[in-house]
Design a protein around this nucleic acid. Structure first.
Lengths: 307, 307
DNA sequence: GGCTATTACGGAAATCGTAACCATG
DNA sequence: CATGGTTACGATTTCCGTAATAGCC
C-alpha cells in the first residue's frame, strides 16, 4: 500500500477514468492501470468496476482511509519542515466563508501591531482550511461548523493541530418572507410553535420534508443535519457549491429552498426562525500548528479575547 | 516517505539502535541505515542523533505522525478485508483492564443466545484495544479512560471506528487508611474540604505535590491528570506498568503513592476520596467497526442496555 | 579494540513508458 | 470502429545484502 498507489487510486476514483487520472498525475494510462492492479492484488480484491469506472464496496472503504492517510502524510512532512525552517515573516490566514465574517478588524489590529508583515486571507471550503494549515500552506485557519454546545468541531487530521474555540452562536432557519413559518406562530402552521417574543421557534425534525438548499461550504451541511436528527434524511432540492453568502440568501429569497445558518447572518429581507431542537450551535474555531510566529500569536489572542 | 521507511524509523527510535531495529524487522543494519538516510535526505533534515541514538526535534515530530499513519494503513487494509471476508463465527473481545470488570455476565448471556460461538477475551493496554479492533484482530473492544462528563474518549484512529458509550462513573483518589486525607475532613488537612456524608472531597489541584503512582494502563494516567489541571505536572513517584488492579491497590496500601480510579474499584481497606475539581469522569466505551456479526451485536446491545 | 553506524558495490526486483492487445459501447 | 483499460516487454531506477570503512566508547 504505497502512498503513490493510494494517490493514483483516489485520483482514478474521483476522475472516474484511468486516463484522466493519468493525465492529472503525469503518468501514462498504463502506469495507472498497473498501480490499480498492484493495489488490487495486494488487497486481494477488486477495488474498481471498469467501464464505467466506479469504486466497489471494498474500494469505497479504502477511499475513506486513503484521503486521510495522504493528508496525514503531507501533514507529517509539513510538521517536520516547520521545526526546521525559521518561522515565516508573513501571515497567511485561511478561513471558511462564515468564519471569516468578523476577521477584518482583527487583521487590521494585527497589522497595526506588526506594520511590516505581509498579510493574506484565503477563503476556502471548510475541509480545505484545516488541510491548508496542516500542510503548512497557511499559518492560521478559521473554520466554522455545527456541533453540540461547547463540543469541539469534528475536524479531520485532528492530531498534531491545535484548535481554540472562538465563537458560538445560535442557529436559525432562513426562510423567505412569504412562507408559513415566517409569520407569527399559528395553530395551522405545521412545525411551528409559539415562543417568547412572538417569534416562532422551529423543531428541526419537523422540517425534514421541507425544500432544502444544500450549501455544504456555507450553511449547515444537510448531511450534518441528517446525522443530528438521527437516520432521517434531509434531501437537497437545490445544491449551491459556492461560498458567497449573499448569493445563498438570494437563492433562499427566490424560494429555491431553506438553509440553516447562524442567526446573525440572515438579513432582514428573510425571516430567521430560531432552531431549538437538537442541541446544535454554530461554532468557529481557530486552527494552528503552534503559534511561534508573533503575528499569528497576536491575531489568535485578538480572536480569542473577543468573548 | 514510504511506509517501510517510516516503519523502520519508529523501530529505530524505540529500539534506540539501528542494529536492534534491523533484527526486529528482519533487515540488515545496512538496510536500516539506508532507510534512515533516505528519510533524512527526503525531509532535508537529520531525524536522529547517533551514538547514542535519539530523535532530533524534527524526528520527534515525525514520530508523532508515523505511528498514526502506520496504524491507519493497517486499519485501511483490515477495513477492506472486512468488506470482502465473510463475518467470523467467533467473537473476540479486547478490553482494557478496568473496562473488562463487568463484562463476564454479559459474555455469559451472549453465549447463552449463541451457544455455538467460540468466545475470547483479551486484556490489554488501552491503546492496544482500539488498535486491535481497527486492525480486525478483535471484533469488539471495550476501552476505559478519563474525559469530561458525556464527552467521548479521545481515541486514536477515531475515523472508521464506531464508539458507543456504555458507562460513566465518578473518580476517586485511592488513599491508604492511615493518611491525613483518609480521616473525616478537619481544618488541618490540606486539600481536604468538608462534604456531605462526613466524607472528604478533594480538589485535584491540591494534590499535585502528593506521592503518585503512575499506572497508565490501569488508573488515570498522570499525563491525563496533568492536562486536566493545566500546565501543572503530576510527577510519578512510582511506576506500575501491569494491568492487575489488586496489585495496584496493594501498592497504594503499602504507601508507595496515590492513584485516581473509578470509585467502585477501590476496596474498603483503602479510603476512596471523591474527586470534585475539574469535571472529570471515568468512562467506558464500546469500540467496533460495524456490528454485522450477530453475536457482536447482541453483546453490544447487552452492554449498552445496562444503565 | 570492540561495537556500531556509514559507504561502496553488485545482483535482484520494482517502476514506468512504449507499444501491442483486447473489450465494451 | 473508436475509446479506453490491459498486457508484454525492456530500459532505468530502486532496494537490499555483503563487505569494506569510519567514528565513538
Amino acid at each position: 500500500m504505497d502512498p503513490h498507489l493510494l494517490r493514483t487510486f483516489v485520483a482514478v476514483a474521483d476522475c472516474g477514468s484511468f486516463s484522466a487520472a493519468a493525465e492529472r498525475l503525469g503518468y501514462t494510462q498504463s502506469a495507472v492501470s498497473q498501480h490499480i492492479a498492484a493495489l488490487e492484488s495486494d488487497l486481494g480484491t477488486p477495488l474498481l468496476h471498469r467501464r464505467p469506472v466506479s469504486p466497489t464496496p471494498a474500494g469505497e472503504r479504502l477511499l475513506e482511509h486513503a484521503g486521510a492517510i495522504l493528508l496525514r502524510l503531507d501533514a507529517a512532512r509539513a510538521d517536520v519542515r516547520r521545526t526546521v525552517a525559521e518561522p515565516p515573516s508573513r501571515l497567511d490566514v485561511a478561513a471558511s466563508p462564515l468564519a471569516a465574517r468578523s476577521l477584518a478588524p482583527h487583521l487590521a489590529a494585527a497589522r497595526r501591531t506588526y506594520p511590516g508583515t505581509q498579510l493574506s486571507l484565503t477563503i476556502c471550503p471548510r475541509a480545505e482550511v484545516v488541510e491548508a494549515v496542516a500542510t503548512t500552506f497557511h499559518t492560521l485557519g478559521l473554520v466554522d461548523g455545527i456541533s453540540a454546545p461547547s463540543d469541539p468541531l469534528p475536524l479531520a487530521v485532528t492530531a498534531s493541530l491545535h484548535t481554540i474555540p472562538t465563537t458560538e452562536e445560535h442557529l436559525a432557519v432562513a426562510i423567505p418572507r412569504p412562507h408559513p413559518l415566517a409569520r407569527p406562530a399559528t395553530p395551522a402552521a405545521p412545525g411551528a410553535r409559539a415562543a417568547h417574543g412572538g417569534l416562532s421557534v422551529v423543531d428541526l425534525v419537523d422540517l425534514v420534508d421541507a425544500r432544502w438548499i444544500d450549501a455544504p461550504d456555507l450553511a449547515a451541511p444537510l448531511a450534518t443535519l441528517s446525522a443530528a436528527v438521527g437516520a432521517d434524511r434531509f434531501r437537497p432540492a437545490f445544491s449551491y457549491t459556492g461560498t458567497d453568502l449573499h448569493t445563498l440568501l438570494a437563492l433562499i429569497e427566490a424560494g429555491h429552498g431553506l438553509a440553516v445558518l447562524p442567526a446573525s447572518t440572515i438579513t432582514p429581507n428573510l425571516a430567521a426562525v430560531p432552531l431549538n431542537t437538537p442541541r446544535l450551535v454554530h461554532r468557529t474555531e481557530l486552527v494552528h500548528a503552534g503559534l511561534s510566529v508573533p503575528v499569528a500569536k497576536t491575531l489568535a489572542d485578538l480572536l480569542t479575547a473577543r468573548q
